[in-house]
Amino acid sequence: MENKFEQFLRKTLSKEESQKLLEDIENDPILKKEFEEYRDTWDMIKVLERRKLKEKVSKIAKNNATSQIKNNRWLWYSAASVLIMVLSYWAFQQNVSGEQMAQTYFKPYPDKYTSMGQNVNPLSKAMSAYNKENYQEAEELFSQLPKEFLNDVELYRGICWYQIGEKEKAKAIFRKLNQDSINAYIGPTLWYLSITHLALNEKDSAITILRQIKDDPMITFHKEDAIEIIEKLQ
């Protein structure tokens, strides 16, 4: 009979069989008692089954939450990576565009000394290195020149530093020259200073100086280039 009870409680009996069993139970007090005891036990065992199920559900929910956090974390990591990449690209673009522009427009200042026949010995050696694009050597030779030459060759020294890659040193020299009231090379100084700012990606400073070149009627050196760069930068 227990098998029948089990099938009934598992709901695997047919409708007719279930009906028949219920009728039997109703008509037989001993069977009824037996069934009630079996049902109580069955319900109690189902408590065990439910507890096991609840444990499983809790575990799955916990895993879900963890994977969601992980997914979110990955989402954040991905978003952060994309942002970093975009920012890096943007920063790179900023650098490249400044540098590229400087590269496009930069040309070493021509040798005005030896080409004009001023072949003064200590200077010619330095200018020779400069003309041969041996900028490191040229800078060393320029710096060893007697004091009276130093002011005249400062522009070349700045260009040497620029070409060596020491842009900050170049900038310092051009700035100093720009503040020098007896500087004979105002136009070139401003031009190379603006180019150095560009190369250092200091666009605002570059624009300020380029505007000086543009607005000063006395300056003709690279005026058109200055106007062109201002337009590009704006």
Partner: peptide
């Protein structure tokens, strides 16, 4: 409530 609810639903389904 949510865990209990899911458990109850699954339990009821499994027990017809």
């Amino acid at each position: 409530v949510f865990i209990e609810g899911i458990t109850e639903v699954v339990f009821n389904i499994k027990n017809n």
